[in-house]
């Protein structure tokens, strides 16, 4: 079946502008992180926020709140958002399908089944253990999907990979649902995790996850040129002398590391990986050397801000960030599509 490629929006933004907009995006991200640290249930003055970062005082409650609660939370949101944005962009380039997202390799479905199964069978009940189960489950599933997609004479074509991923994801999601339907305790235990959240992640977990994410991000940025070529079609990439098999494997590896770690940290957050790359492509065109960094920055800023809004919008209730991203992002995305996608 012919898959419509993604080359539907040509970028008219000149190179210097793309270059110049990078610092602006970084500034926006920093501002978002700073607001995320400053605003919350406890009212904390700006000076205190700065002081807690640069002149930490262990006796001061406000300093403790910021150091142990808000800072890890903001950093988690930033890392997860960046990882999901980049992983989504790579998946869409790799499969040349606008419906592709990091979940397409089965990572989210596998992680969810591993966590729900762990809760059901082994009564696991802490976030760090969830993280391990999620990462292992996600990675194993991705391997299975890639293996299934590579079955047969030709290696993993985008089409086979796509359909194998969708099929396996849906199989695992069914098993997850089955457990949750028949075991109320598991449902109660994990339903908040299932919605995707960055609350209550402690600094230790973040520090353990950060090297994985950074490695994944760097690997992705380095491959920007190759992914651009691959996204034009495998024959073209091969004709241009590219070793398609390796590039595909490496990009899939980057997606597994990024999305696997993200789901371990924050649970399944669906919307960002799917939509952020589309938004980025609307202004940055189809050159993944630009698409990838912008997806990282935009994904990070968007997740940090969604988390902030989820905290302050309906106090004292706290909305999981996975719900907020889709609730805010959905309408904005529709507006952008109507305005930008011309054919």
């Amino acid at each position: 079946m012919a898959v419509r490629t993604l080359n539907m929006v040509r970028s008219h933004v000149p190179r210097p502008l793309l270059m110049g907009a990078l610092p602006v995006c970084i500034a926006v991200l920093l501002l978002a992180i700073f607001s995320s640290i400053a605003f919350g249930a406890a009212d904390i003055k700006l000076q205190t926020v700065l002081a807690s970062i640069f002149a930490f005082d262990a006796e001061n409650t406000n300093h403790l709140i910021i150091r142990t609660l808000r800072l890890p939370r903001a950093i988690t949101a930033m890392l997860v958002g960046a990882a999901l944005g980049v992983a989504g962009a790579i998946m869409q380039g790799l499969t040349r399908n606008p419906l592709a997202d990091p979940g397409l390799l089965g990572i989210e479905a596998g992680a969810a089944l591993a966590v729900v199964g762990g809760v059901f069978l082994f009564q696991i009940n802490s976030l760090p253990v969830y993280a391990i189960f999620a990462f292992v489950g996600g990675t194993l599933t991705a391997l299975a999907v890639y293996g299934l997609g590579s079955m047969g004479r030709e290696s993993a074509t985008p089409f086979k990979l796509t359909v194998a991923g969708a099929a396996i994801s849906s199989l695992l999601a069914s098993l997850t649902t089955a457990i949750l339907l028949f075991n109320q305790r598991s449902l109660e235990e994990v339903r908040f995790w299932m919605a995707g959240s960055v609350a209550g992640r402690d600094m230790k977990l973040v520090i353990e996850a950060a090297p994985f994410l950074l490695a994944g991000l760097i690997l992705s940025f380095v491959m920007g040129r190759q992914i651009t070529t691959l996204s034009m079609g495998e024959d073209i990439a091969r004709g241009l002398g590219q070793n398609v098999g390796w590039i595909k494997l490496a990009s899939a590896g980057a997606v597994v590391v990024l999305a696997g770690t993200a789901v371990a940290l924050a649970g399944p957050i669906g919307f960002i990986g799917l939509v952020i790359p589309h938004v980025v492509r609307m202004f940055a065109g189809n050159d993944y050397r630009w698409v990838l960094p912008y997806s990282a920055l935009l994904g990070a800023s968007f997740l940090v801000l969604s988390d902030l809004l989820g905290r302050i919008l309906v106090q004292p209730l706290e909305l999981p960030v996975g719900i907020m991203t889709a609730a805010i992002g959905g309408p904005v995305f529709i507006y952008l599509v109507r305005w930008k996608v011309k054919r």
Binding site: R4, R191, A195, V275, G330, P331, F333, V337, V341
Partner: peptide, 26 residues
């Protein structure tokens, strides 16, 4: 346009999905 239909479909399903998942969570 099919591509616009797909993309708007993603946005709309996500926004409604947020509501559904809110209900299931709380």
């Amino acid at each position: 346009s099919p591509i616009r239909l797909i993309l708007v479909g993603i946005g709309l399903s996500a926004a409604l999905g947020a509501f559904t998942s809110f209900a299931l969570t709380f």
